[in-house]
Design a protein around this nucleic acid. Structure first.
Length: 573
RNA sequence: GCCCCGGUGGUGUAGCCCGGUCAAACAUGCGGGCCUUUCGAGCCCGCGCCCCGGGUUCAAAUCCCGGCCGGGGCACCA
């Protein structure tokens, strides 16, 4: 094809795609993009393109199309095949099938929440993707400031299993103190670590000036002797610490000679009691464990990025290879508190009902609301491993969850804040038969019976639809005309049975209940937990854990059944 | 203050490494329509984004520099 004709082809395509006007820049881009061999000649091509584009733009759309059909009819044929791809995680660097080992290392000092779920789900997902191994390791080495509690060990395992995890190994850092001790000793012997007995303020001052503390360069024999004194109790809490030698001039003072082990006098650790008084800090324990357990890939929050720099010193000293680390941004969900300390405080103050309070973002809270594990997993995978922080919206989670529960959730009428409605002019009994699920008639029907002379109940939420002389359809029953409205009572008059009539007139449709059983729905709204009380259709046979849709109200999960009374938690519209 | 990371529609993500097919995709949201005994689901149409300023280049969301904004670290916490 002649150069000029090639240009003409792209110009015509571009013009046709953009309402008859081609853009010379876009045309050049296309030409050079699809024909790399022309790139060196870019300078010569440009004036020619401008010329051709001008020519094309002066043609009518019909002329353009005709011309393109003449020189390049293929354009009108293809057109369908779109690109599919996406979905699913990107490949992991340095990952080999069957050899990937990942870990999730929480501190069991609080309940597992959506924010933690990012690292956990990514770790697990990649382990499965590469037929590798997923390790759960409890980083419970702080018996003091972030004290682990027995219940959280159980809950974390329970929550992970609920999310569908296959946990291949479980370890507890608190079982491994001897291991940390032995590596600490090795480093001391190697002259790569030292026992520092400086006042912490004094040490910081030296560190910020890039100066060594007096203990740094003492010989290994002295260091080991000091180390024994740490172990046997001659040093008390706060008096001595083991530091890893790094670079005193490291640009980031936070990296300089970081602390690896410290003393806790009366740890009273939930697992080991007072058996140990020297405890590793996070960076030390984590560095040793990741190597010892054969971890190949680490997923963790950005707040740990600097820790990689610190930990690499140990890997270098021992000649180990550092795992591939992926640092993702922080994950939050709009309007929901995830912080463990704030949650704990709220619980202590009695503001929250517990770690599974529906207002919270813990996995247990989400589960109570009827959020499905698969929805959480999908959401996390969609967010992926970006480094930027993400604030996901409830709408997003709700949309995914709705798609999952919509087919399983049977329908019922729940009338919040019921108002009696007297209906005149219909003197027979009328039983409405309503499918449990409109798309699955085979599931059967619910039967709601209207009895003349007895009121039915409608929701105060629908009050604005109920105006004098307006018509309304009681869903699956009949059409009525509103005669009188107050907050206490509504009087209506029977109009007609036919659904078609309501549809023709575009009358609004509301749900109702002839007689009901008590029902409460807990609706979390930000920091508030609103209790909606009302009536649920009498024969609704709901069990705890059922996820149903209260028509025109929203999806809920049944949390409790007390005799006749049903207590549900609102998930989303 | 010092040291790391980030910045694409209202929200989340793809594209950035390796400049052109990006006149920017997908989901959610919002607006409208169709369908439907739900304000639900489904289908269709529409709205809406490359943080700012320079530079390199024929060509920048993409590379470089500067700024602004946001997050994180600077614990004997994890």
């Amino acid at each position: 094809m002649e150069l000029r004709e090639t240009i003409l082809k792209y110009a015509l395509i571009n013009a046709i795609q953009h309402d008859g006007k081609a853009n010379p820049k876009a045309v050049i881009g296309k030409i050079l993009g699809e024909n790399p061999e022309l790139r060196p000649k870019a300078r010569e091509i440009i004036p020619l393109v401008n010329e051709v584009v001008q020519e094309v733009n002066s043609m009518s759309k019909e002329e353009q199309e005709m011309k393109l059909r003449e020189i390049y009819p293929e354009f009108f044929e293809e057109h369908k095949e779109k690109k599919e791809e996406k979905k699913g995680l990107p490949p992991l660097p340095k990952a080999e099938k069957g050899k990937v080992v990942t870990r999730f290392a929480p501190n069991p000092d609080g309940a597992f929440h959506l924010g933690n779920a990012r690292a956990a789900i990514l770790s697990h997902e990649y382990a499965r993707l590469y037929d590798g191994k997923f390790i759960l390791r409890f980083d419970d080495t702080d018996p003091k400031v972030k004290r682990p509690e027995p219940i959280f060990y159980e809950w974390i395992i329970e929550d992970l299993k609920w999310l569908g995890f296959q946990i291949d190994e479980i370890h507890h850092a608190s079982d491994r103190l001897e291991i940390y001790y032995s590596y600490a000793e090795k480093l001391l012997e190697m002259g790569k670590a030292y026992v520092c007995t400086c006042e912490s303020e004094y040490f910081k001052k030296l560190r910020d000036e890039g100066k060594a503390c007096p203990h740094r360069d003492l010989p290994p024999e002295v260091q080991l002797r000091e180390w024994k004194k740490m172990l046997n109790g001659e040093y008390k809490e706060g008096e001595a610490v083991v530091r890893i030698k790094t670079d005193l001039n490291h640009p980031n003072p936070a990296v300089r000679d970081w602390p690896a082990l410290r003393i806790i006098d009366n740890p009273n650790h939930p697992r080991t009691g007072n058996r140990y008084r020297v405890w590793p800090l996070y960076n030390f324990a984590s560095a040793i464990d990741d190597h010892e357990l054969g971890v190949t890939h680490i997923f963790r929050g950005q707040e740990h990025a600097e820790n990689e720099t610190r930990q690499r010193y140990i890997y270098e000293y021992f000649g180990w290879e550092y795992p591939e680390a992926v640092h993702h941004g922080r994950l939050s969900i709009e309007g929901v508190i995830l912080s463990k300390s704030k949650t704990r405080k709220g619980i202590e103050e009695g503001k929250y009902l517990g770690w599974d309070d529906p207002r919270l973002g813990t996995i247990r809270a989400l589960r109570r609301r009827g959020i499905q594990p698969e929805a959480i997993r999908e959401l996390i995978l969609e967010v992926g491993l970006k480094k930027s922080d993400t604030t996901i919206s409830w709408d997003n989670l709700a949309a995914i969850n709705r798609r999952i529960i919509e087919p399983i959730a049977n329908r019922y009428f729940f009338v919040a804040d019921p108002i009696p409605m007297e209906i005149k002019g219909y003197d027979e009994e009328f039983t409405a038969e309503i499918p449990l699920h409109p798309d699955y008639p085979e599931r059967g029907v619910r039967k709601l019976k209207f009895t003349p002379g007895k009121p039915i109940y409608v929701s105060k939420d629908d009050l604005e639809l109920l105006k004098d002389n307006e018509y309304i359809r009681l869903k699956d029953l009949f059409n009525v005309k509103i005669v009188e409205v107050s907050e206490e009572k509504i009087i209506a008059e029977f109009d007609s049975v036919e659904y078609e009539k309501a549809r023709e007139h575009r009358w609004r449709m509301i749900h109702w209940v002839p007689e009901g059983k008590p029902c409460e729905v807990l609706v979390p709204e930000g920091e508030e937990l609103i209790v909606r009380t009302g009536l649920l259709e009498k024969n609704a046979n709901l069990k705890v854990d059922d996820i149903v849709q209260f028509e025109r109200f929203g999806f809920v999960r049944v949390d409790k059944v007390e005799g006749d009374k049903v207590i549900a938690i609102f998930a989303h519209k």
